[in-house]
Amino acid sequence: MNFFQIFVEAISWIAILGGCAFMLVGAIGALRFPDFWTRIHAVSVADSAGMLLLTLGMCIQGGFTLVTVKLIIIGVFLFITGPTATHAVANAAMVSGFLPKGADEFRKPKIAHDAKTRKLKAKKKSPLKGGL
């Protein structure tokens, strides 16, 4: 084992252990932050840094094989869908009127539908009206 190999091994272990540390930090933050809007940020630490570092370390361990290709596919997928899912949760919370303190200016106005739309919705809500 020459110097270069030892160097690469060391980098991969640093990446894996650092990723695990960030995952633990994200979990601890999700446990002890006081409300939902701060917990989102704690989870996003695990989503970005922890995921990237762990995937990088495992890629280096895998070498130039099919394992690395699969890990890269997993990493790219999580890289795109992680923030999207976080945004979806935050947007759903905001739309339902669940806002942090001091953000009332962003509250959505209630929508009044016209009679036709309301009728259509009512029909959709009870598709079995009139028996089976």
């Binding site: 989102i40 989870v43 695990a46 922890g50 995921m51 762990l54 992680g82 976080t86």
Partner: peptide, 12 residues
């Protein structure tokens, strides 16, 4: 949110 994060943790 916790369920989504749990999924990410499980994948890794």
């Amino acid at each position: 949110l916790a369920g989504n994060a749990f999924g990410t943790y499980t994948v890794l």
